[in-house]
Nucleic acid binder design. Sequence first.
RNA 1: GGCCCUAUCGUCUAGGGGUUAGGACACCAGGUUUUCAUCCUGGCAGCCGGGGUUCGAAUCCCCGUAGGGCUACCA
Length: 478
Amino acid sequence: MTVRVRFAPSPTGNLHIGTLRAALFNWLFAKAKKGTFVLRIEDTDRERSKPEFETNIYDGLKWLGFTPDEGPLEGGDFGPYRQSERIEQGVYHDIADRLIKEGKAYYCFLTDEDIQREKESAIKKGIPYVHSRKSSEMSESEIKNCLSEGKPYAIRFKMTEDKIITFKDSVRQTIEFDCSLISDFVLMKSDGTPSYNFAVVVDDALMAITHVIRGEDHISNMPRQLSLYEALGYKVPEFAHLPMILGPDKSKLSKRHGATAVTEYRDQGFLKESFMNYLALLGWSPKDEQELLSEDELVSQFDLDRVHKSGAVFDIKKLVWMNGQYIRQISDSQFSTLLRSYLSEDYQQKLSLLTEEKQHLALFSVRDNLDVLSDINTYIDVFLETESDYDSKSKDIVLNDDQRTVLSSFLSLSKECKSSEEFMGCLNSICESLSLGKGKVFKPVRLAVTARQSGPFIGDVLAFFGVDRLRERIQRCL
RNA sequence: GGCCCUAUCGUCUAGGGGUUAGGACACCAGGUUUUCAUCCUGGCAGCCGGGGUUCGAAUCCCCGUAGGGCUACCA
């Protein structure tokens, strides 16, 4: 049987790290098993679901290349793939009706206040709250009356009592629940939309999902969902519950931690390679100790049996390190194209005025300095600022005698220099002839030439400006 | 409160009866072009606690403790 997995986000917010990691694991599993990766939009929350969030989810998936095999935009044989559209088709309504007829569900006319009162009295008595099931005892004529009066109602599922329900999780071991502790839960809300627990079971079954891979926060829903599978006579899929991704305070990663949309990481200049690689290592580990893994390596090595059980703190520092690794690893042309796209419009404009050679020099001189690609805008300033910008900074430069000596000897020795290598040769020979350490020579040159203490590789900087412009700047400092 | 899950360096993790408990990030020191970096080398640092089982426990079991999740007509 071919594997069918699904990624089922709700468009009630931008795509977040935790959600994306679930997508990644589903996608990796589908690729590894040559299965089908289904995208289902769970937009049953009419209040909070927004089209722009669905777009953001698509943007995030697209960035990493997780193209759904079936989904709202892709289509497929098990559609529609938006729950809102499935509601319109009456999918859930029909099934809920069937459960009522079979006596497995009932109309519930209790108001929020009624339920609140039940809860409070349970707390007072110190016993766990379980829904009272009052409405299920109504006679048929009572029900008809309420219905014809137009009284708002929900449809509740009658939980099996006095039963221990068990399932085997692919990540953990056997987990069991005592059903007598679980309330009759809502199948259809009073607004006619299905609840999460109902919709998820119906859709996973109807979409022939074979493996449900999702966050650990769904474990507590298992007794409800498993009871539904049983009541509906559906085949139960395999379940794998992924550990949570945590913030620095070890609670579930959320906006509180500044957990921004996945697209913001893209916009800052994290590479999709490093983002995917890092995320894969959050909750899963390969057999050997290699940590830098390509997409293909990830796919070929991924398996559910190496998924971890405990939560993992999202460590931006390691992501940054990994991003640097990939920035230095990708091809020159890839680097150049990608990096240019992160340049501000102003810098793009200024850069385009330069020769190819100078553009290349400016872009590649900072490759080792970059953590994220958008950093280019702070580094490249030294190459693109106007002469008057430079002047305003350089006028405060104060040089000592040694530094003046270095600069004058640079002036006389660098006349023939053109390339980065030639300039470095020149600087090194100054070190020797003046018996000075490299820092004593490099520093004043950089200072005089750029009016900065640090910056891109000095050889490239000198080659970029060329002898004439260097001479001009240095003489103004002396 | 009830139910469920989890527990190896600060962080991500390997290891699952006998290991000098391994790697990575971060941090510190040294070396590369005494710039910021990159890169290389070295260092610091860990099995939550208590009981059992066993010749032997970080590893298996139980109990604590801690953290997390769920307890919605959110998903």
